[in-house]
Design a binder for these strands. Sequence first.
RNA 1: GGCGAUGUAGCUCAGUCGGCAGAGCAGGUGAAUCAUAAUCACUCGGUCGGGGGUUCGAAUCCCUCCAUCGCCA
Length: 676
Amino acid sequence: MAERSPWFYLTTPIYYVNDVPHIGHAYTTIAADVLARTHRQMEEPVFFLTGTDEHGQKVWQSAEKHSLSPQLYVDRILPRFRDLWVRLGISNDDFVRTTQPRHVKGVSEVLARLREKGDLYEGAYEGWYCLPDERFWTDKDVVDGLCPECRRPVERISETNIFFRMSRYQEWLISWYESHPESIRPESRYNEIMGFLRKPLADLCISRPKSRVPWGIPIPFAPDYVTYVWFDALLNYVTVPWSLGATPGEGLDRLWPAVHIIGKDILTTHAVYWPIILAALDLPPPRLIFAHGWWTVDGEKMSKSRGNVVDPGALLDLFGTDPLRFYLLREGQFGHDVDFSLIGLINRINRDLANDLGNLLSRVAAMADRYFPGEGVSRPETPGSPELREAANTLLPEALARTQALEFHRALQTLWEFVAELNRTVDLRAPWVLAKDPERRGELSAVLYDLLEGLRLTALYLAPFLPETSGKILEALGVPAGISILSYREHGVFGLEKIYRVQETGSLFIKRDTLGNPLGEEGEGSRKKTRSDKTATATPEPAASGKERPSETEQEKPNKASEVSAPAPLIDYADFQKVRLATGIVREAEPVPKSKKLLKLSVDVGEPVPRTVVAGIAGSYRPEDLVGKTVVVVTNLAPATLMGVTSQGMLLAATTQDGVALLTVDGPAAPGNGIK
RNA sequence: GGCGAUGUAGCUCAGUCGGCAGAGCAGGUGAAUCAUAAUCACUCGGUCGGGGGUUCGAAUCCCUCCAUCGCCA
C-alpha cells in the first residue's frame, strides 16, 4: 500500500435534514466520535467531519409547505442535528452543510472537471419516477403502477439528463477491491459489493431538471439542471478538505483517503459510486468503509410508519450522555443489527455502569479518604497487587486494539474485565482488614495506590467512550483533567509517581427503575441536567457531594417527582393505541423478598389465569390494602424480571410528592374492561 | 429465482489449526461488610438447527434438508 497520510480523516454520512434525528444517526456519530477520540489519544492528527445534506426535492417541498425559502427552512432545521451532537459530546472538527459556498464551489469544479475528461454525457432518460423517493424505476420494478419501495404511485417521465460514465471504471474497481478486501467491512458487506459488481454497472444520472427539482447545486454548463442530491452529498468528503488548504488541493492531499463510517443502507453509494467518482477525479478510494447495522426495536425494524422510532433526544433527557453512548456501543456488535430495548438500556446502566464501575470508584475513594485523609496514598516501593498490574498490562492494550478495529463492544467488554479485576482485588486484599493492623499500613497503602492507579487507567481508556465519566473519575482522583487530551503514551503506564489525595465521592451513575426513573436518595446536585460542552473532560465540577454524606437511615423517601420532566414529543392516536390498557382486580399481594420497593401482585384482568405483576409501590401501599382494589394495567408490556420475579404487566400510578398513588376507575368495572 | 450469511445454555453471543463445549446476563448456594443492597467465590444449565459423510477424533471440513436474515432481480 502506498504510504498514507499521517492524518486520520474520519467521516460520518451527512444527514438529510428532512428527517428528524433518530437513534441510528446518533449511533453512527457516536461510533465515529469514539474512534476520533481514540486516535487523538494515540496522538495522531485527527480530522473528524460530519454535517448535513440540505438539497433535493423533499427539502424543497417541505419548505414550500412551511412557506419558507428552502435556505431559511434548512437553517431552522439544522439545530436539531447540531444541538444533538453537542449534547452527545461529539467532538467533530468541522461541520459541513451542502449549502455552504465552499461545498457548492467544490461540486461545481468537480462537474466541470468530469466534463472536460469526457466522463459526462447527455442522454435521454425515460422511466417511472417516484416523487417522494426521488428515484427512477424501470418497467420491471414497478408493480401495478406503484413504487416498489414506498408503494405510492409513480409517474412516467421522459427527459434529457446528464450521465456519468460509471461503467468505464467497473473493471478497475473490481480489481482494486480484489487486492484490498479489507477496505469494506464487515466482510459480509464486502461480499455483497463484489456480488453487485459482477453485473454490469449502469451509468449514473447525476442531473435533475430545475423545472422539477429547483433546489440543488446548479450544473455550470447546463443552466436548466441541478445536481442529483447523492452526487452532491458524497462530494462533501472532498470539498471540505479542499476548502481547508492554503492552496487548492493542499488540504485534501494532507487528509485523503478517509475512513467512512456509514449505515448498511447506504453501502452501495459509498462502496461503488463514490470510489468511481474519486477515480474519475484521479483520487484513490477511501481507506475504509465500515457499514454498521441497524437498530431494531423489540425485534422490529424502526420506521415512521410503525411509529417505533427511538428519539435520542428523549433518551438523553432521561439518562444523560454517557449512559446512552455506553449502551449504544456496548449492546451489540458494530456491523450487526442490534435490538433496542429500554430494559436493556436500564440494565446496562444499573449493572455495568452503576454497580461495577460507579460503586468501584465509590468504595475505593471512601477507603482512601478514610484511611489516609491527610497524607494521601503514594507510590509504593513494591507493587500493591502484581496481579492487578499484570491485568492492566494485558487488558488495556487489548481494549485499545479492539477499539481501533471498530469492535467497540469487545473493547468495552475487555475494559469491564479490568473493572472486574479491580473489584476482585478489593475483595481479595480486603483493605478494611489491613486497616485494623497498624503494622500492615504500608501494605494497605500499596494496595490502595494500585487500585487508584487502576481507576486512573480505566478512566483514561474509557475516555473516548465516556468522556464525562472519565473526567469525573479523574477529578475524583485529583488528576488534573484540564488538559483536553490524555495520550496513551504519556499517561498509559501503571505507576505514576503521584500522591493520591482522594475524598469520598458521590455517585457516578444513578440507578433506574424499570421505567427509567432514578432510584435512590440522590436527589440533590449529583444529577445535574446534562449540558456538556464538546470537551467534556475539561468541565470542572465542584465536588460538593464529598462533604455531605447521605444519612445512613434508609427511610428517606425517594424524591423522584421532580425528575420526570422530559419535554414529550407529540404522538399519534395510533401510537397511543399500541398501549393496551385494561382494568384489573388485585387478587393477591405480597412483598418481594429482599426488596424494599417491590410488591408481587396477582391481578385478574379477565383472562383465564391472573397475571403476576411486580410493582414498585411497597413504599406507598401495604399488600393487604391492595387486595380487591381495581387498578389499571398495561397488558401488552414485554415481561420483565425484577428481583427474580417475572412481571407480566404494569400498574399505572401517579408519581406524587410522597411516593406513588395507583390509578383506579370511577365506577364499577369488571376485570378486563378495555380502557382508552 | 440468483448470490451471501446466520442457526451453540432461558437471553445476548464467543469458540483460532479438527483435539475434553465457553463468557456475560438471568437462576441457585455461600462469603464478605470498604461501597450506590453495590462486590467476590462456587454452582445449575447445552442432541452445538435436522440428517448423512470424511476422520482415531467434527460445533469446526464435505454433502443435503429446514429455518431466519441480508443483497440483487
